[in-house]
Simulated scan of single mutants.
Amino acid sequence: MPELPEVEVSRLGITPHAKGQTVTRIDVRQPKLRWPVPETIKNIEGQPITAIERRAKYLLLHTPVGYAIVHLGMSGSLRVLPKMAPPEKHDHVDLHLASGKLIRYNDPRRFGAWLWQEAGGEHPALSKLGPEPLTDAFDAEYLLVKANGKRTVVKSFIMDNAVVVGVGNIYANESLFTSRIHPQRPAGSLTAKEADLLVATIKAVLDTAIKQGGTTLKDFTQTDGKPGYFAQELQVYGKDGKPCPVCSETLKGVKIGQRATVFCEKCQV
């Protein structure tokens, strides 16, 4: 948390304010994030932001000389504020824009990151990522090929960024429930029909979450400070011990890969 929808919502939120704007200054108040903020991040000063992309859960702020890589970690968020807005606790990075606005990065747990990559290269953090789930590259045929012979449980499989990026814990729970697939099944046991349904469901769940502004459980807010509303759509995540919304059986909660997993033993097979 934040997961792919929250990061995409952040990208959509800052793009109208930042794209085409020149960065006049970057203030790094706390360089000790998940990885130390490199001195080369200063290369963004004086550069126009030509594009803002998302790759997995990374935001890429492109300029002619390279791009800044922003990861929100577990508790990070971006806000668009007036340039004179005083920093508060956990406000670690400010990106000042020629428009008079700034993009402020807040991260209480400091598990996020600000990195830099010179133009013409690919940062190691991005080099081994699987396809984006909302693109045509992620389809049932691809999923079946990757799953073939895999004994890894299907929930861990679809959360593996080398398989497909951005299917975080919340959305893996929801997608498997909607697809009626038991999260502890081996990935290699998926049938062609199940793979087709699972891919379609992952795309639909993520798309709906983005349209709802993401999911706010604890820390995440949109760039305007508002929460994400997908939490109201959750069917099983965080609801172990409660009735299944389909059959009314009690939902079961277990740990898979140290992540909270909730499912219905009757509906999911």
Rank of each mutant, 00 (worst) to 15 (best):
A56F: 03
E8W: 09
L129W: 13
L4D: 05
T201P: 00
E249S: 15
S179T: 01
L102M: 13
M159K: 04
L144Y: 10
P86W: 02
L198E: 07
L129Y: 14
R34C: 11
P124E: 14
T178V: 11
G149A: 15
E265N: 13
T135M: 09
K32P: 01
I158M: 12
W114Q: 04
N106M: 06
I69V: 00
R109Y: 03
V70A: 13
P36S: 12
V145P: 00
P108T: 01
A187W: 13
V167M: 06
S179P: 00
C264E: 06
V262S: 03
K101L: 15
D136I: 12
L115F: 02
A68I: 12
N106A: 00
D160E: 02
V269K: 08
K83E: 14
H123W: 07
T250C: 00
K255F: 06
I103R: 01
P245F: 02
D27F: 14
S77Y: 03
R185W: 00
G121T: 15
K155H: 05
A85P: 00
V246D: 10
G225Y: 08
M159D: 11
P245K: 06
E249G: 11
E118R: 15
Q212D: 14
T15C: 01
V7G: 07
R180L: 10
P243H: 10
S175K: 11
L60M: 09
D91L: 08
L234V: 09
R25I: 02
A200R: 13
C244D: 02
A137N: 13
L60T: 10
K203E: 03
P31W: 01
T216Q: 14
A56L: 06
V37G: 08
G241Y: 11
E53H: 15
A140G: 09
S156G: 14
L190P: 03
K155T: 07
T216C: 12
A231C: 05
V167C: 09
D160W: 06
N173C: 07
P87H: 06
V65E: 12
R55P: 04
G238Y: 09
N161R: 08
L12Q: 14
L176W: 06
I170R: 01
A260G: 15
G20K: 15
I52P: 09
E6W: 06
